[in-house]
């Protein structure tokens, strides 16, 4: 009996290394499948666009490069997060690698957590390197990247972590195609949540059953807009925030990040509950 409880104790205490083993493997897979090659594409694209638009923008090269760079980091990040996120689980099932991993001394939620953390690690490396490339471009053009851009980039990374968790939730019970569609649709709605809310409470729909339903939807969908704020007006504010003039404070970044990470945690818990009882046939 004591042997059994020792074994159970060892399995309980070793959760960290097991999750890390799965995370490390997920990161290794992304690197070996040349996901980070998009960095070269990003750098070349940024260089080409900044040269062209810099010429057209009459001495506003730095502004253009920063706007374009931030958009590029977000766009490339969203595409990668969506593509990798919906495939995190389905690829394991399609390629049947799950049949050899799950029988190892590993709980199913640890496997999911490891996969998620591996993807977060991949996205962190990706965003950091893209931000470094952007900083070099800005520096070469005679500007400075600055802490404001870092705040915007941190928010982009949190947005990607949230998007991955949403993708993982959908892929825990549906096919990668459906998961990509659901997650993509939710991202579009989440990015335009303010508009949806304004529409639901506006003159036409305000107070109607449809307006109430849309308002409830706006309350439930993840608020991706709160994590990509440059060039938009925040609720309650009357000025447009931008990385060039007045941007959000570290306090806002912390608050929005907490919201994003808590939402991501809720999605992960949902995915874990669904995956825990799934037959891996």
């Amino acid at each position: 009996m004591s042997g059994r409880s020792d074994e159970a104790g060892r399995v309980r205490s070793a959760m960290g290394p097991r999750v890390w083993a799965v995370a490390l493997n997920t990161f290794r897979e992304a690197v070996r499948n040349r996901v980070l090659y998009v960095l070269a594409l990003f750098a070349v694209g940024l260089m080409a666009f900044s040269v062209v638009l810099g010429e057209l923008s009459m001495h506003e090269e730095i502004r253009v490069i920063k706007d374009l760079g931030l958009f590029g980091i977000s766009f490339v990040g969203v595409v990668i997060a969506l593509f990798l996120g919906v495939n995190l689980l389905s690829k394991e099932l399609d390629r049947k690698t799950v049949y050899f991993v799950i029988p190892k001394p590993l709980r199913r939620f640890e496997f999911l957590l490891g996969k998620y953390l591996g993807q977060v690690l991949t996205l962190t490396v990706l965003v950091t390197l893209m931000a470094a490339i952007l900083a070099i471009f800005v520096l070469v053009q005679g500007g400075s990247h600055g802490v404001v851009m870092v705040r915007a980039e941190v928010l982009v990374l949190v947005e990607l972590c949230l998007l991955t968790a949403v993708a993982m939730l959908f892929s825990s019970f549906s096919s990668p195609y459906l998961s990509a569609m659901f997650t993509g649709a939710l991202w579009v709605i989440g990015r335009n949540r303010a508009e949806l809310l304004a529409f639901a409470t506006g003159k036409k729909l305000g107070g109607t059953p449809l307006g109430t339903v849309l308002e409830a939807c706006a309350d439930v969908v993840p608020d991706f807009h709160a994590l990509y704020v440059s060039g938009s007006q925040l609720p309650g504010g009357d000025t447009v925030v931008s990385v060039h003039e007045s941007f959000v404070s570290w306090g806002y970044v912390a608050e929005a990040s907490l919201y994003g990470l808590l939402y991501a945690a809720a999605c992960l818990v949902g995915a874990m509950v669904l995956f825990a009882r799934r037959d891996l046939v």
């Binding site: 059994r4 074994e7 159970a8 493997n25 690698t97 050899f100 001394p105």
Partner: peptide, 21 residues
């Protein structure tokens, strides 16, 4: 149970592993 799985070695039929390793 993970405590049981820790004491078991398993070879699946037509094993598929992470082919980049």
């Amino acid at each position: 149970d993970p405590a049981a799985k820790a004491r078991v070695g398993y070879l699946p039929e037509n094993p598929y592993f992470y082919d980049y390793l």
